[in-house]
């Protein structure tokens, strides 16, 4: 195995361009599971460990190298909430936002927040930069449009309301991969965005449900019932070893409603 540890971003992009099918390595919490299970044996690993450029983080930008342990301290309530539910302290100390994006699991905990916030993923290569909205970046389960020579450098976050909530359903508190995850962002005057994970091939927005929630600053019980019904109707879950499609469809409506109710308080 060839292992390179570039000292700067430009060097990393050169390395990604120089090798055939290089594997970027950040926290290792996804890659090493596959390696340990003999599902994957990378020929070339480009380590991102020394790239301080990827650890920059402010109100409009989260670098790909920011760990979930750091995101637990986020000012965005939903981002802090989701970060706390990722894996365990050991996983959060290592795992990065960029890794979550690169692996692109439908259950990735950061994605409902990024989709609700209409975040853009920024990719760099020696050929230049691409800036893709979340729904242009994710194309299927564990599939993105990232080319092997491109590096995920971070996400751009547009301005978003302060009323936010994240919720997920799993079999226990820690070390759990979600069966449904949900993020709601709501402007006090009405406009509402709701994104859900683990209930489709990629993270998705429940736009019909957004419409009913966005219509007014005050929502009645009837509105909330309709919101919940629409979320359940819009998700596209499957049955797998973690849950059934039927349960996920029901739970999606319930958690989305709870998250919205938290935003209304």
């Amino acid at each position: 195995m060839e292992y390179v540890r570039p000292k700067a971003l430009g060097e990393a992009l050169d390395a990604l361009a120089a090798f055939d099918d290089p594997t970027p390595l950040a926290g290792g919490t996804d890659l090493m599971v596959e390696v340990n299970l003999n599902h994957r044996r990378p020929d070339v690993v480009v380590s991102l460990r020394s790239l301080d450029e990827l650890r920059r983080w402010d109100d409009t930008w989260i670098g790909a190298g920011v760990t979930f342990a750091r995101l637990e301290g986020a000012d965005d309530p939903a981002l802090a909430q989701l970060a706390r539910t990722v894996g365990s302290p050991q996983i959060r100390a290592a795992a990065t936002l960029g890794g979550n994006l690169g692996t692109a699991s439908p259950a990735a905990d950061s994605l409902p927040f990024l989709a609700a916030a209409d975040a853009h993923v920024v990719l760099k290569s020696t050929a230049g930069e691409r800036r893709l909205r979340w729904d242009e970046f994710f194309v299927g389960p564990k599939q993105t449009v990232r080319r092997p020579d491109e590096l995920i450098v971070g996400v751009e976050l547009p301005s978003r309301p302060e009323r936010q909530a994240f919720a997920k359903v799993g079999v226990r508190q820690a070390m759990v991969i979600s069966m449904v995850s949900c993020c709601v962002l709501r402007d006090p005057s009405g406009p509402t965005r709701v994104a859900l994970g683990s209930v489709g091939p990629t993270v998705l927005r429940a736009t019909d449900a957004e419409e009913v929630a966005s219509q007014a600053a005050r929502l009645t019980d009837t509105d909330l019932d309709e919101f919940q019904r629409r979320v359940s109707a819009e998700v596209r879950p499957i049955t797998d070893h973690r849950s059934t499609a039927e349960y996920r469809r029901h739970a999606a409506g319930v958690v989305a409603r709870r998250a919205l109710e938290r935003c209304l308080r």
Binding site: G27, V45, A94
Partner: peptide, 15 residues
């Protein structure tokens, strides 16, 4: 300085 799972740290990356 951080507690991690050593099974998920690639040996080369721990250099």
């Amino acid at each position: 300085g951080e507690v991690v799972c050593s099974c998920l740290v690639m040996a080369a990356d721990a250099d």
